[in-house]
């Protein structure tokens, strides 16, 4: 039998989800860690625009009808004390670290953009 407790400790600021179709890869399958994804702009109508590599995506902001909880699994602290008979009942096993109430969805086909670098110009 298992009982895992959930602690509620959300970030005071709501988190955001960006939804893209397909997947994101680096040119040479390098890990994504610390890699730049793109630039997020808003136009005069308040619509989000994402420049991702050599692509432009137009998106929209969607308010979620139910919030999404971000659940983080807590790694249990090892009980290194001598009294190993004490079972640590109060350790929580999951924590809701944030709530997401808004998504930015980019569902349109990406538009290729042609960038002219200074070095290309003669």
């Amino acid at each position: 039998m298992v009982e895992l407790s959930v602690r509620y400790n959300p970030d005071s600021k709501e988190w955001i989800i960006i939804e893209l179709q397909g997947s994101v890869e680096t040119y040479n399958s390098l890990p994504l860690k610390d890699v730049g994804l793109g630039d997020l702009h808003y136009n005069a109508n308040g619509e989000p625009l994402l420049i991702l590599g050599h692509h432009l995506l137009k998106g929209k902001i969607v308010n979620l009808s139910n919030p999404i909880g971000v659940f983080a699994k807590q790694t249990k602290k090892q009980n290194s004390t001598l009294s190993d008979s004490i079972t640590d009942d109060v350790t929580c096993d999951y924590e809701v670290v944030a709530l997401v109430r808004k998504k930015i969805i980019f569902a349109t086909r990406p538009k290729p953009i042609l960038v002219k670098y200074e070095s290309d110009k003669d």
Partner: peptide, 30 residues
């Protein structure tokens, strides 16, 4: 190049975190 000329707010540069976390988090609609 993308002809974005009517930018009304600062641009946000998005980067994948150096502690990119793929498995420890779950998204659950509440």
């Amino acid at each position: 190049a993308a002809s974005i000329t009517d930018n009304i707010v600062p641009v946000q540069i998005l980067t994948f975190s150096e502690n990119l976390n793929f498995s420890d988090l779950k998204l659950i609609e509440l």
